[in-house]
């Protein structure tokens, strides 16, 4: 326990980086994911094909390989990104297809009768989408999106293996320095991860539960 309290500054330094990775790559993944999702439902065929192939390829590539590419192969090819930027790019690219799928499944989840009804009372395209479909799709996408961000929180730990000093890297360093208190050190780090993931998980479960009953 003493080892944890003594090393709190190191923990928080790592935790800050974890949060930074989470926020920056989360926002970037939302942007890329929205673009990919709208490509997938667009009437333009080639964009749809591109988005499908992108989703399939990125989702089946292990995150370790994506980050390996960003942190080791990109500099080898001549890029001059810092490791933190490289990790952010890797995490956002890896997360984006999951965001896109969460959005798409939300829009697909709105029963078709809703759109038919609004068309038949005479609403136009913008009104149908803006007033009827989107408000329902939006809340159906919230629980899956929270789920994606929980996964992202856990995935930031992989960046610790590629020269970014975040919580996992900090823990590894502390565990090596304090051989006699390894368990306490590791549990300290686990707590910090759980502080983010468990409340988000409960929130996602509750929202999903509420909306499953209403459907």
């Amino acid at each position: 326990m003493d080892a944890v309290i003594e090393n709190l500054p190191t923990y928080f330094e790592g935790f800050r980086m974890t949060l930074l990775l989470l926020v920056v790559s989360g926002i970037a993944a939302l942007v890329i994911g929205t673009i990919i999702a709208s490509m997938r439902i667009s009437p333009v065929g080639s964009l749809r094909v591109f988005a499908t192939v992108y989703t399939e390829l990125v989702r089946n590539t292990p995150l370790t390989l994506v980050l390996f590419f960003c942190a080791i192969i990109l500099p080898y090819l001549g890029s001059e990104l810092t490791y933190v930027t490289a990790a952010m790019i890797g995490l956002s690219v890896y997360t984006s297809p999951f965001v896109a799928e969460a959005l798409r499944s939300g829009i697909n989840g709105v029963p078709i009768g809703q759109a038919e009804a609004s068309r038949s009372v005479g609403l136009g395209f913008t009104q149908t989408v803006g007033l009827v479909v989107m408000p329902q799709a939006f809340r159906m996408t919230i629980p899956p999106l929270i789920n994606v961000f929980i996964a992202l929180t856990k995935n930031t730990s992989v960046a610790g293996g590629f020269f970014v000093f975040e919580l996992f890297a900090a823990t590894r360093e502390l565990a090596n320095a304090n051989g006699d208190a390894v368990i306490a050190i590791l549990l300290g780090a686990a707590t910090l991860y759980l502080v983010i993931t468990i409340p988000l998980g409960i929130l996602a479960g509750q929202l999903e539960r509420k909306w499953v009953v209403q459907r």
């Binding site: 995935n155 930031t156 730990s157 823990t171 565990a175 590791l186 998980g201």
Partner: peptide, 15 residues
């Protein structure tokens, strides 16, 4: 479920 797998691997490896 809330812990990163990587941290669990480190835990088992070290402890």
């Amino acid at each position: 479920r809330g812990m990163p797998v990587l941290l669990m691997m480190l835990f088992i490896l070290l402890v």
